[in-house]
């Protein structure tokens, strides 16, 4: 069971109130008519599907019905943060790798 903090409601609620919509931060091509088949197919269908840190789109469908983003680990399922649309994630694959390296006393 995931417990998810909705950044709009300001409350941590059970997973059942939410709906996942897959990878976040996918930018719609500005001029779809000018896209090649490859570009359009990539935009519609192809996903990163990482084993690790994943930025993903959620909607609080059983609550405020607003969309937001979450940074979640796809193996441990730990949710590092949730943030509103338009904001940037503070936890990324790079930041986690750096934190891990410093925890082990490795300096770059």
């Amino acid at each position: 069971m995931l417990n998810i903090f909705c950044p709009h409601c300001g409350e941590t609620r059970s997973e059942e109130e939410f709906h996942a919509h897959g990878q976040a931060h996918i930018v719609r091509p500005e001029n779809p008519a000018e896209c090649s088949d490859e570009e359009w197919g990539d935009y519609i269908f192809f996903r990163d599907n990482p084993r690790g840190i994943h930025h993903e789109l959620w909607v609080h469908s059983g609550g405020c019905r607003k969309f937001f983003n979450a940074t979640r680990h796809t193996v441990t399922y730990e949710i590092y943060e949730t943030y509103k649309i338009g904001e940037k994630p503070s936890v990324t694959e790079a930041s986690v790798a750096a934190a891990k390296a410093s925890a082990q006393g490795v300096t770059a």
């Binding site: 197919g41 269908f45 192809f46 996903r47 990163d48 599907n49 084993r51 796809t74």
Partner: peptide, 18 residues
């Protein structure tokens, strides 16, 4: 389920979600 990860190792993406 790990095909997306394998594709990443090989340097491309797949239209899959695990």
């Amino acid at each position: 389920g790990n095909s997306g990860h394998m594709a990443k190792l090989a340097g491309f993406r797949l239209p899959l979600e695990s």
